[in-house]
Amino acid sequence: MIVNSREVEISNLKSEVKKYHDGGYRFVTETCLNLEDKFKIIYTFAIGYDLENIHIITDGKNVPSVSDIYSCALAVENEIKELFGVEFDGLAVDFGGDFMLGESSPISPQADIEIIRREKGGKNE
């Protein structure tokens, strides 16, 4: 299916997602993309066999987490947090950088830009 995603303001994200949730949509996944110096996060929902996509453009800080609406989003949001370094606000469960990465692994290996830095001798912030 060719993707036609609709851009959503970050401030409206939660109300949009809530609309999908109340409309009986199933959460499929989130996809993070590297743009020049920003990130694009695509949210994919499904009802029956049909997909709908919305996306936000973010600089990687204070993205509202949708894991309080769809609790299953916490796995993918933790993954994006660790592989891309995007910070989510209000994650239902924050694995603190232990979900996909280990203590000695590189920080945000899939991101083109680095926004989380390793503290000296410590783990992710």
């Binding site: 996944t29 996809t31 590297n34 695509i42 609790s71 299953c72 796995a75 993918v76």
Partner: peptide, 29 residues
């Protein structure tokens, strides 16, 4: 259900490939 997201930029290299595998979706369950 496996979900492949592909973004292409017109060259022979893909911009982004994302694979949402079924086990990943079953982890919350």
């Amino acid at each position: 259900e496996v979900v492949y997201y592909i973004k292409s930029n017109g060259t022979k290299f893909l911009d982004r490939l994302r694979i949402r595998t079924p086990t990943f979706a079953n982890i919350p369950a």
